[in-house]
Every structure is written in structure tokens, then in C-alpha cells.
Design a protein around this nucleic acid. Structure first.
Length: 509
DNA sequence: ATAGGGTTAG
């Protein structure tokens, strides 16, 4: 290459970079095309320009036509696909990269975490450690949130240990992520420890802790933390108040809840949003003020959404209000016609009221409108892995043992006084089949697996995708008694801590 | 010349 051409290449590269920086990818491309020849550096600059504008297809064309590629080229492509949520493509590039550095691993892990492919995020994290690549604080936030999502307490605690024993400084966001992880994995004491030890906290740190306590049914602790936050001069935001209202809901503090709700903009200058009205409808409805909840929906300054009507419907189930339930259902059929949960709820409401025509009607509707029931899934962490169960599945390698344990469990529970709540089963089948169907609920499978695999007396932690059903809730109380175990169950809404035949939710959930 | 992050109503 002549000195002149080399100088020209240098100038072209600078031009591409400069145009990219001011957002003129078209001019950058023109300069790129006019270059006398292309080296890796110039192509990488062009790649970065496209990726910055999320034009990954264009970037890919450049990438494919490059005379040679280096680590930066590969990493830029991984990031480009990850940015557009094309995790599979990102992974293809990642797999094609021989030399991976911390950039490659972190981009890929965060791509998985962001798209809630949490298992894959953790698998990759283990591979990254095995490859001896050092993560930094930001990578760990992705790993920790994958643990939160899965309820992977052991893995999450390992990451925490890793931070403590390395020289990585625990920053605000990683600290907050750890608080959330421990809370979502059922270990609220550890959340509190991390929280107490953080020298600097912001509104998100406080909110995360407040929400964590609230979801564990520790309403009073949650509210006193809120007071402490205020007295320390920290300004709450809308999310903080969601936590405060959840705290009131889970303990049934109606008057308090109304007071906090009013104080939001009167005292704290935070405008309530539809989420806060949702919390209030739940608080009022759940505590038996179903009419008042209905009235609040009418008077609120927002169009009620499906979640609001669903909360009202849930209240109708607890307090056996068929009329308001039917009204809520009319709205839900418009706002969320395919959502499966409300059909089940209304059907249970009819069953409670001995309205068997109603139950039959719901069954017909579900079939006619082809409503897809979302299957219940429960998981439990054991030996570095998340073991997931779907109701009735026999896919687990230790399925035989698990079903054996289930039989034993049921005998033992029945002796202790457990009665299967067969009226909860919607299918039109005989009594024995209904009982069978209850036994195979995913949380019971997960608990049976837990009883087999964990040492006597240890706590069993389960994560479930839906709200736990009443039959399982009752069964778990008996299990905690009959097997002398603590069970900590994360349901879609909150935590249940079962011990000695009782649940921390006081059967109010 | 390449990157990634924490809280939210049922």
C-alpha cells in the first residue's frame, strides 16, 4: 500500500466515524464506499454505525463481506442482534466466535436476561466462569436478575459470595438487584441484610425493599420502612406507593391504605396512576368492601383495564358476590377475551353458589371460544439446576419416585385431616378423576421432588407461575405439619410461608 | 472501533 493510499484509508475511517457520530449513517456509508481499500478497523467502524441505529441487517451485510474479522467485529454483531431482541441470531454469532472476551459473554448473558430466558442466562454464566473470564458489576446485575426470575436462591447467593470474595465493588444497582433477588427467592432476611449494609441507597433501593417485605406478608415492617424512608428525606415515587399499597393489601389494612392513597399527591406530590387504583380495588375488594371497590372503578379518572376487573372478580370469589362477578366478566370478555383465569374464577364463584348451570355454562364457553388454559408450572432449585414441573407431567427423570412420593404424601395428609377440594376441578369428570387431577398439580409435584431430594427438616422453596389454588394451599399446610418442614411458596402474587400447619398469609390471599 | 444494569397493580 502506498503511503498515499494508507493516508486515504485513515481519513476515510475518520470520516465514517465522524458521520456515524452525528447520526448520518448515509454519509458514513458513502465515505465507506469511497475508501480505496477496507481493513478490519474501517469495517468495524461501519458495523458500529449500523448497530448504533439498530440496522443489524445492514451491519450483517458488511460483516459477511469483511476480508477479515476480529473480536470487535464479532462482539459488535452480538450486540446488534441482542439490541433487536434477536437472541437466537446473537447466539449464532456468539457460538461462531473462537476468542470470546468479557464483552462477548456479557452481551450474550444480558441478551438472555432481558428476554427473560433466564435459564439460558445462568447456563452461560456458568460457562463464563468455567472459561475463567472475570465478570464486572454490570454483568452480575443480569445474572442476579435471572436468579430473581427463576427463584434460584442457591445460584443467587453464590453470585453474592463471589462479589464479597472478589474485589468487585457492590454498586447501587447490584445491591438493589441482590435485595430483589433474595426477596423473590423467598429469603427476605438476606434482603434485609444487604439493604442494611448498603451505605448509599436511592429511591429504587428503598422501593425494592418495601415491595419485598410487602410480598412476604410483612406489611407492618414494610410500612415502617416507608416511614423511615420519609424521615430520612428520601422522596418516594409511584413504585414506592405500589409497594406501600401491597403491604396494606396483604395485611388487610383498609383504613391505612386509604390514608396512604390520599397522601400520595396531597403530601408527597405523586400522582396516582391506574396501577395505584388497581391496588386500591384489590385492597377494598379483598377485605370485603366489594361495593366500594366497584364504586372506585366507576369514579376513577382512568379507563379500567382488564387487571382492574380481574381484581374485582377475585374479590367476588372470596366474598361470594355473583352479581358483581357477572358484571366484571362482561367487561373482561371485551378487554381480555382469551385470558383463561377469569373463566376459572367465575366458574368457581358459580360452584360456591351451587349454581351448577353457571358452571356448565362456563365450561361450554371455554370450549366454544377455544380458551387456552395456561398450565400451572412450579419449579424448585436443586443441585445447581432449576427443576420445573407442569401439572400432570411425567417428563422428569425421577418421575417414578416423585409419583410414589405423591401417593405416600396423600395418604399421610388424609390421615391428618386433609380433604381434596374436588369442587375446584372444572372438567366434567367423576369424583375420583377430579381427585387425581388435583394430586398432579405442579406445586405438589415440585414439593414431592423436594421431599425426596432435600434433607429432613430443611426448608423447601417453590416458585409457581400462577396463583396457588386453594387445594394446594390447604395441602401445603398439612405437609408442613405432617413432614415437619417449612415450605416457602412464591405464587404469582405473593409469598406463602407454611410452617406447623399454618400459612403466613392467614389464608387471606 | 464493540457492551451490558436495579423497583411497579391480578
Amino acid at each position: 500500500m502506498s503511503g498515499f493510499a494508507a493516508a486515504d484509508l485513515f481519513v476515510r475511517t475518520a470520516l465514517v466515524e465522524m458521520y456515524a457520530k452525528v447520526g448520518r449513517v448515509d454519509l458514513a456509508r458513502a465515505a465507506f464506499d469511497e475508501a480505496p481499500q477496507r481493513d478490519v478497523f474501517l469495517c468495524n467502524v461501519m458495523l458500529a454505525a449500523y448497530v448504533a441505529r439498530s440496522e443489524v441487517a445492514e451491519a450483517r451485510k458488511v460483516f459477511d463481506g469483511m476480508p477479515a474479522r476480529d473480536l470487535v467485529s464479532w462482539n459488535t454483531m452480538i450486540h446488534g442482534y441482542a439490541m433487536r431482541g434477536e437472541v437466537g441470531m446473537a447466539r449464532e454469532i456468539f457460538d461462531g466466535t473462537e476468542d470470546r472476551d468479557a464483552f462477548s459473554w456479557s452481551s450474550m448473558i444480558s441478551a438472555y436476561a432481558k428476554s427473560r430466558r433466564s435459564k439460558e442466562a445462568l447456563d452461560l454464566w456458568r460457562e463464563m466462569r468455567a472459561a475463567g473470564i472475570m465478570p464486572d458489576c454490570i454483568t452480575l446485575v443480569s445474572v442476579v436478575s435471572a436468579c430473581s426470575d427463576l427463584g434460584a436462591l442457591v445460584t443467587g447467593a453464590e453470585v453474592h459470595n463471589f462479589v464479597e470474595s472478589s474485589r468487585i465493588e457492590l454498586d447501587l444497582k447490584l445491591g438493589t438487584a441482590l435485595i430483589d433477588m433474595y426477596a423473590k427467592c423467598g429469603d427476605i432476611e438476606s434482603s434485609q441484610k444487604v439493604f442494611d449494609r448498603m451505605p448509599v441507597k436511592d429511591v429504587q433501593t428503598w422501593s425494592t425493599m418495601i415491595i419485598g417485605l410487602a410480598n412476604h406478608g410483612l406489611g407492618h415492617e414494610s410500612l415502617s420502612l416507608f416511614s423511615k424512608m420519609i424521615s430520612e428525606g428520601m422522596k418516594p415515587n409511584g413504585v414506592t406507593f405500589v409497594g406501600v399499597l401491597i403491604a396494606c393489601t396483604h395485611v388487610g389494612l383498609v383504613t391505612e391504605g386509604k390514608k396512604y392513597f390520599r397522601s400520595m399527591n396531597q403530601v408527597h406530590g405523586v400522582e396516582p396512576t391506574v396501577e395505584h387504583y388497581g391496588c386500591m380495588v384489590d385492597l377494598l375488594g379483598r377485605s370485603g368492601h366489594v361495593e366500594e371497590a366497584r364504586h372506585l372503578i366507576r369514579s376513577m379518572p382512568f379507563e379500567p383495564d382488564a387487571i382492574i376487573w380481574r381484581a374485582l372478580l377475585g374479590a367476588c370469589r372470596i366474598h361470594k358476590n355473583v352479581d358483581i362477578a357477572e358484571e366484571a366478566m362482561v367487561r373482561l370478555r371485551v378487554l381480555d377475551p382469551l385470558g383463561d383465569g377469569h373463566y376459572v374464577l367465575l366458574s368457581n364463584i358459580y360452584a360456591q353458589a351451587n349454581s351448577w348451570e353457571g358452571v356448565a355454562e362456563m365450561r361450554k364457553t371455554i370450549r366454544r371460544d377455544n380458551i387456552q388454559r395456561i398450565p400451572g408450572r412450579s419449579s424448585i432449585e436443586w443441585e445447581d439446576k432449576i427443576h420445573e414441573f407442569v401439572c400432570g407431567d411425567r417428563l422428569h427423570p425421577r418421575s417414578k419416585e416423585i409419583y410414589g412420593m405423591l401417593e405416600e404424601m396423600m395418604d399421610r395428609l388424609k390421615q391428618a385431616g386433609y380433604k381434596p377440594m374436588t369442587s375446584l376441578v372444572l372438567q366434567d369428570i367423576d369424583e375420583q378423576s377430579k381427585e387425581r387431577s388435583l394430586v398432579e398439580h405442579s406445586e405438589k409435584l415440585a414439593i414431592a421432588f423436594g421431599l425426596i431430594t432435600t434433607p429432613a427438616g430443611s426448608t423447601i422453596r417453590i416458585t409457581k407461575n400462577l396463583r396457588t389454588c386453594e387445594d394446594c394451599h390447604s395441602a401445603m399446610k398439612f405437609i408442613s405439619l405432617a413432614y415437619d418442614r417449612k415450605l416457602i411458596v412464591r405464587d404469582r402474587n405473593r409469598f406463602h410461608h407454611f410452617s406447623e400447619g399454618l400459612c403466613s398469609c392467614n389464608d387471606y390471599w
